[in-house]
Amino acid sequence: MTTSATPRGGSPVVYWGVDDIDRVRERLLEVGCEHHRGPLTIGPGRRIAQLRDPFGTIVGIEGP
């Protein structure tokens, strides 16, 4: 029997491009998502954040 080293909700993570990462992140938290990681600056003018949706799936947002 084999087991996965990646727990449910681990990678891969799908990222949605957004115009305002802070506003979208706050809205997702308001409607039931939980903080997972970030926001992180990963390059000039590019940030990402990850949230866990109510079903346990990690989703990412990317934007300025």
Rank of each mutant, 00 (worst) to 15 (best):
G56D: 06
V13D: 06
E30I: 12
V59G: 15
E34A: 09
P39V: 09
L28V: 05
R52T: 14
E30H: 13
V14K: 05
P12Q: 07
V14W: 02
T2N: 01
G9D: 06
V18Q: 02
Q50D: 08
R23N: 07
W16M: 06
P54M: 15
G60F: 00
T41Y: 02
G56S: 07
G45R: 13
E30A: 14
V59I: 15
I21G: 00
W16P: 01
H36P: 15
V18T: 05
R47H: 13
P7G: 15
D53Y: 10
I21Y: 01
E26Q: 13
P12V: 09
T2A: 03
G45T: 11
C33E: 06
G32N: 01
G9R: 02
S11L: 03
L51F: 04
G56M: 05
D19G: 14
G9Y: 03
H36G: 06
I42C: 01
M1C: 07
R46F: 13
R52L: 11
G60R: 07
L51S: 07
G43H: 04
R52V: 15
G32Q: 02
P44K: 08
H36F: 05
A5R: 13
G9H: 03
T3P: 08
R46Y: 12
V59M: 11
L51N: 10
S4T: 00
T41S: 04
T6M: 12
G10C: 10
E30M: 10
V14S: 12
G32Y: 03
E34N: 05
I61H: 08
S4R: 00
R25Y: 01
G43F: 05
V13W: 02
L40F: 03
V31Q: 08
I21E: 00
F55V: 05
E34H: 07
I61G: 09
P12H: 03
P12D: 06
E30Y: 10
I42Q: 00
R8D: 04
V31G: 08
V18M: 02
L51Y: 07
V31F: 15
V18R: 02
D53N: 09
I42T: 01
G45H: 12
T57L: 07
A5E: 10
P54G: 15
D20N: 13
D22Q: 13
V59N: 11
P44I: 03
R25E: 03
L51C: 07
V18S: 02
V31N: 08
E26D: 14
T41D: 06
L29P: 10
Q50E: 13
V31Y: 14
G43D: 03
T3N: 11
T3K: 12
T3M: 10
T2E: 01
P54R: 15
Q50Y: 00
T2Y: 01
E30L: 11
G43K: 04
I61S: 09
R27C: 06
E30Q: 14
T3W: 05
G56F: 05
G10Q: 07
R47S: 12
I21H: 01
Q50K: 03
G56R: 04
V31R: 08
R23Q: 12
A49D: 12
A49Y: 04
G38Q: 07
T57V: 14
R25D: 01
E34L: 04
A5L: 14
C33N: 11
T6I: 13
P7I: 09
I61E: 12
M1Y: 09
L51K: 08
R52M: 10
L29H: 09
V31C: 10
G17E: 01
R47L: 06
T41R: 01
R25H: 04
E34R: 13
S4N: 00
G17P: 03
V24L: 11
I42P: 00
I48D: 04
